[in-house]
Design a protein around this nucleic acid. Sequence first.
DNA 1: TTGTACGCGTTATCAG
DNA 2: CTGATAACGCGTACAA
Lengths: 366, 366
Amino acid sequence: MFSIIDSGFTKNVHTHCGNLCLAHDYAVERFLINMKHITIKDVASLAGVSISTVSRYLSDPTRIRPALASAVRKSIKELNYIPNPFAQNLKSEYTNIIAVITPDISNQFFSEACKALCNIFYKNKYFVVICDTDDDPEKEKYYINEMIRSRAAGVMLVTCGQNTEFIQNVVDAGHRLILFDRMEQNVKVDAVCEDNFRAGYDLTKYLLSCGHRSFAALSGSEKSINMQLINSGIQKALEEAGVVFENKYNFMNIKTKEEAASTFESLLTYSDCPKCIIACNSNLLDGVVLAANRMRLSIPEKYAIAGFSVNDPRYTYPFPVPAIMENPALVGYEAGELMLKYLADKSKLQTPKLILLDAKLVLPEK
Amino acid sequence: MFSIIDSGFTKNVHTHCGNLCLAHDYAVERFLINMKHITIKDVASLAGVSISTVSRYLSDPTRIRPALASAVRKSIKELNYIPNPFAQNLKSEYTNIIAVITPDISNQFFSEACKALCNIFYKNKYFVVICDTDDDPEKEKYYINEMIRSRAAGVMLVTCGQNTEFIQNVVDAGHRLILFDRMEQNVKVDAVCEDNFRAGYDLTKYLLSCGHRSFAALSGSEKSINMQLINSGIQKALEEAGVVFENKYNFMNIKTKEEAASTFESLLTYSDCPKCIIACNSNLLDGVVLAANRMRLSIPEKYAIAGFSVNDPRYTYPFPVPAIMENPALVGYEAGELMLKYLADKSKLQTPKLILLDAKLVLPEK
DNA sequence: TTGTACGCGTTATCAG
DNA sequence: CTGATAACGCGTACAA
């Protein structure tokens, strides 16, 4: 990595496997005392061949005479030689770096998506670098710039939503960038997202079909595109059913699990408390369930709890909770596949597409 | 980044902020059509100055005549110039890359530790790169090798425990490597870990003080150093109290939350089922709590559940659960601070230390 | 098949 | 204060 895509891995086979286990005194001395890295020149002179012979050996050991090859191999082991990726890249201008830029690596959704991306790119001989932006637009810009500067082969981004123009310019400049999880409606860029509008709609339709008519909703940041889409979906379903959704029961900008729990608890003190509570993300759903457990509420007899979850609700909650099961691994996988397709195609300019993954409504078992 | 530590950031100030927003046709054309990056040479010729003048401008704009400085600035903007980090590093041999190598980024403990590391290094102008090894020794070796190859300034590693010799050699070769969360008892290397032996001991002592005398334990992989330490701690406390811990109630190698739940459920069918269940990691504790909720068990009246949790048990579980509260952010923070100290000291060889962070036993509120 | 020599983009040294 | 030039380590035409 940080090296040429097509030959970097071949080289590793010959030069890296276990090298460090055989650190020769000479190499250690040069490194520790002179702080000087072993170069191809050292290898060449020790092996008694020219630099190019070593270079050739690295790219394909069969291209040189067997006798020299073994001398070179010995020399490489002896000196514990590791090719300098910066010099390699200076020539090639290509790297196998894939940057994954997410707002919050400690969020289960993103960490699972990252995991999927790591796996898919590892298999395809790319090197994944994960960055955490804290949903800070400046940090996001910084990391994107740095990854472009590093000649990353591609950038997978979950944007905070406040770098619209910047992202458009990056894409226009010809860099391979794919959004995942969060779309940007005004940017011509590829994106792989879950269909959150549909998810909100489907879930609400189902709850209506169960006979529910009074709803409360808890959601995260109102700036979040996904929260907006989910809310639109919920609204649409309710409108179609002619159910009025009182605004005072639409709790926005709830950040933590505990905040969700206490919101639900205080909601229960209302005389006209809705019977069906929708939590619009995994964290909030956990919070609502926590509160229900604390209060030993009868679910789903007295109240119905529904929402969005990263985990399978059937095996996560102690009572029936119909929920849209998010699939971060699938989002990561699909986004990764799309990136791989672009990396394989040399063509850079394509009509950007928006891939919407189906929302999966998981119902309680009978 | 992937650039010189001391000057990379200064440069960013002048060259990167918002550059991409002003992509000039010329640059776009050169990049898209010729696939040729803009170099310092282009900037120099457009500005009508020499390469060295531009280079000087980049490192310190005040070092050249104001008139030329503004010409250079204009040229840089016009061409949307971004210094090539590979060329920079080829000269300097130093990077500000910090590699964070973890077994499973989707595990909450590690993702929170990574988050802490990202923050601390971002503040200190280092660039964090996260890698996921899946607890595969080969992947672990691969990533360590690649990061060394990339001249990473430091490597923060959560090892799978099967690369003992390899890690020792890396450290001996003078690379800055720090272990966190999991120690290696036979390697002379710095490590920052939670005191899991003490944690197991303290938790068990507390449970004994509550009057419990019959225990069951659920734990993860028996190969895991942390599981071993926790178990030793538990055993020690029990021995001291003269309580016999029946081996058949020591359930090892439980992997998933659901497996923990069903283990507990089947345990309840035993006629002599222990009254106190200890779950040795966060996931397993969640599973046991899930089962208890499902079965509406009276906790802590009929059974006591205790264990290890990443989250504050008082706000996570609907009933009292005494637990060792793991603190991944602190582990990350302390490990990061230690690395920063080493990076500041130029001295490379130190007696390695093992920093054990205190286990925090969180008791239910009265 | 092997070696020489040049260039990649940058920084640093040295002359002017 | 500025410009020419020599490195940095590697890959590769080109020459032998």
